[in-house]
Simulated assay, not measured.
Amino acid sequence: MKLIYTFLVLFVLVSCKKAPTQLTKITAKTTVVDSTVASTTTITDFVAPYKKQLTTKMEQVLSYTPINLTREDGKLQSTLGNLMADMCLDIANPLYQEKTNNTIDFAMFNNGGIRAPIPKGAVTMQHAFQLMPFENELVVATLTGDKVAELVSFFIENNRAHPLSKEINLILDGKDYTLMIHGKPLERTKTYNVLTSDYLQNGGDHMDFFKNPVTLTPLDYKVRDAIIDYFKKTDTLKVSLDNRVISKQ
């Protein structure tokens, strides 16, 4: 009797066991989020104070420019490109000195990294975010003299106003050039500390000369933060096209 009872219990358990569930079909529906979608008052009310706070922050005036700053007002240099390179170096150099007891020789960034112009007038937090919306960070790549020569060749062949800092004086005559760094001719046997972004140092925008440097020093400082900090400490931005890049043709 006990054996029969045990068998019946096992039979019931096995019979009640569900078969494994298998996924046989997936359906999806696309909902377009636009002005035709009615807003939810609860969500709108919840977001409102944060939106107001963000708007107030973005409208904060940091500096002033007496002229329009763009990346297109010169052939091989620009007012905004010059400003970009110079202000990043200004902020980065003390950090690099603290880390290495050395100084930065010059800075180079890419023309495409300048994402928006700054119009004449008040310079706001929003302008800084529009100028550099990415999370790129500043790094210093120590390059050989030969690598710096590759940098110049890239600049000439690319024929764009890639931002170079004022420590550079590059005179172009066709494919020939004269390069001065801090007033001294380029020396192939020396190394040079070049400020750039981590994106470019990894070969972004085809700037492969930044790869495999002699040493690489991350500054743990976002490019955008450097821009904001420079704007905050500079009442009026003084920028012009100068002699850092001169073409004889």
Rank of each mutant, 00 (worst) to 15 (best):
C88S: 13
L83R: 02
Q53N: 09
T41V: 15
G112N: 04
P66H: 08
I4S: 01
T41A: 14
K29I: 09
P94D: 05
I4V: 07
I43S: 12
V9L: 11
T103C: 07
L83F: 03
V9A: 09
I104W: 01
L23P: 07
L89H: 04
T27C: 10
T24Q: 11
T79N: 00
L62E: 01
G113V: 00
V33L: 07
F46P: 00
A28Y: 13
S78M: 03
A28R: 15
T79C: 00
M58I: 06
I43T: 14
T56L: 04
I118C: 02
K25Q: 12
A48L: 08
N102L: 06
M58W: 02
L10Q: 06
F7N: 00
M84G: 11
S39G: 15
S78Q: 03
A48D: 09
E98F: 13
D34K: 04
N111P: 09
A107F: 04
G112L: 02
P117E: 03
I104L: 01
T79D: 01
K2D: 12
I104R: 01
M87L: 13
G74R: 02
V61A: 09
T44A: 10
S15I: 08
Y50W: 13
K18P: 09
P49I: 02
N111L: 12
K120C: 12
L8A: 07
G81V: 01
F46K: 14
N82G: 03
I114H: 01
K29C: 05
I91E: 01
N102Q: 10
I4D: 00
N101F: 11
V33Y: 11
D45Q: 12
T55Q: 11
T55Y: 06
K99Y: 10
L23V: 13
R71Y: 08
G113N: 03
T40L: 15
V9C: 09
K18R: 15
A48N: 13
L69K: 00
K25T: 11
V61H: 09
A38C: 12
S63A: 09
R71S: 05
Q53L: 10
A85C: 07
M108W: 05
L95S: 03
A107H: 05
N111G: 12
V14N: 10
F7S: 12
L3W: 11
T27N: 11
T103M: 06
D45V: 03
K2W: 08
L89M: 09
S15W: 11
A28I: 09
Y50G: 06
T100G: 06
T56P: 02
M58S: 05
F7H: 06
L3T: 14
F109G: 03
N93C: 07
A38H: 14
D90P: 07
V61P: 04
D73R: 00
C16E: 15
L54N: 06
K99V: 07
F11G: 04
L54H: 05
Q22D: 14
K57G: 13
K120Q: 13
A48W: 06
R115L: 00
P119K: 14
V14C: 11
Y50E: 08
G74N: 03
